[in-house]
Nucleic acid binder design. Structure first.
Length: 522
DNA sequence: TTGATCAGCGCGT
DNA sequence: CTACGTGCTGATCAA
């Protein structure tokens, strides 16, 4: 960034800066040692709070919506503010600035209309700076470890490709669903499963069903899919994103997810594998630098706790209050047995119902997840809602209210319009109903997490700790902590997370220390 | 031939 | 026929 001293001074000292999409700009200033700490309004984020479902919050599109006019120049949307460039770039920057200043009072009025002033001022606005610091810090990566993981996976995909070609009797692109369809359904003549738009499906669930018809091919094929996914997305993908400082600086988007969650890209650090042991090894490549440890702290069952609170369901609330194993307690109520007599099967069914709850899952979906009949799934669901009647009522009310007003709202006032509820199309309308059930729940969890994140940063900054937040994953925060600060910072962070909001159920936060993200995850 | 976009797939919370 | 995301690969189409 090329900045005149006067401009630098203005950004450092001016008590009120208004920006459209401030974070990239903030980051480039940070790289120059300038801290833009007096952001008072980010018009892109304000526009997002007013309507979180838009596909773009570019200056042009937001101006088009709120002002009915767009800047004519081609201002860069990456936050570059290059006064050393040509006249044209200076011109378009100036024009953009004028538009932002016109936009500001309009979006502020919009926030006021929907009573989002404090959601903006207390949560979203301070979060911009927190995220800028997080992105700027990045997370340390052990490049050698990542390379060796990738090499091992590459070797296996090559072997599997050879094997699959020889079994099929010809060479083909294993990554191509089209070519795969030909082999499976035309050459081999397998009985096809479900269809996609373009032909018969070759996804994992379908292949599992076909497995017994041609095990010597489908077995290795499933294995190939698994390994190739890890190799390409996480092996190659992550290696490309390692910056010269040996760290990965992902972007955390604040105006993408319609529920209020953050999203991550370049790279997406929200979907690093954890379920399979083989995928999990990628987490060993995310490390603490010398002299530091990683603290990984995550909320336990935050969405289910949000449901308990929102539905004000006595059964759920008392189970959480007593600190019971929630799936065990749920199973006991649903199947009408004592806490000590819940079988593993009952517990896992209850767990699946609880997970599906926030998504508006119905009997069919549950039957698929549990590999049971629709009738049995329907009995379980019915039993669940009889055991937790307030939950059922809450879900029904959420839909009715959203249909009446046209939007859902979280406890903190975050809105999401759901026009699908008025659709003539039955499927679309049903999807809208599921969104209406989910939005207040997922959104509340997001609100709470954002509050925790802002407060964690505040306490670390104000007390001059060297510890810094380096990553967040929806309900989990990863903090890089110098060994000398571990004893003090650990408890502070846990307390902050537990105290982020005052619901009718307590929050439980799991924490672990480690040299890598994997070891810290237990 | 190249770039943009869609479709299919699978990873996470 | 469960919500919300990102991104890889191949297929398809326009320039």
């Amino acid at each position: 960034v090329l900045l005149h001293d006067e401009v630098k001074q203005a950004f450092t000292e001016h008590r009120s800066v208004v920006c459209h999409d401030a974070k990239p700009f903030m980051r480039s200033l940070m790289a120059d040692g300038i801290d833009l700490s007096f952001l008072t309004l980010d018009t892109a984020i304000a526009a997002y709070l007013i309507n979180p479902s838009k596909s773009s919050y570019s200056l042009a599109s937001v101006c088009g919506e709120f002002l009915g006019a767009e800047p004519t120049g081609s201002m860069e949307s990456d936050g570059t503010f290059d006064f050393g460039g040509t006249d044209i770039s200076a011109q378009s920057c100036a024009e953009a600035a004028v538009f932002v200043s016109r936009l500001a009072p309009v979006v502020l009025a919009g926030l006021a209309d929907i009573h989002n002033e404090s959601l903006y001022a207390d949560i979203e606005n301070p979060l911009v700076h927190v995220l800028a610091k997080m992105e700027s810090a990045g997370i340390a990566v052990d490049t050698a470890a990542l390379l060796s993981i990738k090499d091992r996976l590459t070797a296996e995909t090559q072997e599997l490709t050879q094997l699959l070609h020889s079994i099929a009797g010809k060479t083909f692109n294993v990554n191509s669903p089209t070519q795969l369809r030909e082999i499976l359904y035309t050459d081999r003549g397998l009985a096809p499963g479900k269809k996609t738009k373009t032909g018969f499906s070759t996804d994992a669930a379908t292949l599992e069903k076909l497995h017994d018809q041609w095990p010597e091919f489908i077995g290795p094929l499933l294995r190939y899919r698994e390994v190739e996914k890890l190799r390409s997305t996480y092996g190659e993908g992550l290696l490309h994103e390692i910056a010269p400082d040996g760290r990965i600086h992902a972007t955390f988007n604040q105006t993408v997810a319609r529920t209020g969650r953050l999203s991550s890209d370049q790279p997406n650090l929200h979907n690093i594998p954890v379920r399979s042991d083989e995928g999990k090894v990628f987490r060993t490549a995310f490390v603490a630098p010398k002299g530091c440890s990683l603290l990984v702290a995550d909320y336990n069952q935050i969405e289910l706790r949000c449901i308990a609170h929102l539905a004000n369901d006595p059964g759920l609330i008392s189970a959480f209050a007593a600190g019971e194993d929630i799936h065990n307690a749920t199973a006991a109520r649903v199947f009408g047995v004592a806490l000590g007599e819940v079988t593993a099967d009952q517990r896992s069914k209850a767990k699946m119902v609880s997970y599906g709850l926030a998504y508006g899952m119905e009997a069919y979906g549950l039957s698929q997840r549990l590999s049971i009949g629709v009738d049995e799934a329907s009995v379980i669901l019915k039993a669940y809602f009889e055991a937790f009647p307030n939950v059922k009522k809450y879900m029904d009310d959420a839909i009715v209210e959203a249909r009446r007003t046209g939007y859902t709202e979280t406890l903190f006032g975050r809105r999401r319009q759901i026009p699908e509820l008025l659709s003539d199309n039955f499927r679309v309308r049903q999807a809208g109903e599921r969104q209406a059930m989910n939005a207040a729940i997922q959104g509340l969890a997001a609100d709470i997490f954002k509050i925790a994140l802002v407060r964690i940063d505040k306490l670390l900054t104000e007390k001059d700790f060297l510890s810094r937040v380096v990553l967040q994953v929806h309900d989990e925060v990863i903090v890089e902590v110098p060994d000398s600060e571990k004893e003090v910072v650990g408890p502070l962070i846990l307390d902050t997370m537990r105290g982020a909001a005052d619901l009718s159920v307590p929050f439980e936060v799991n924490a672990a220390w480690g040299d890598t993200w994997a070891s810290a995850k237990g």
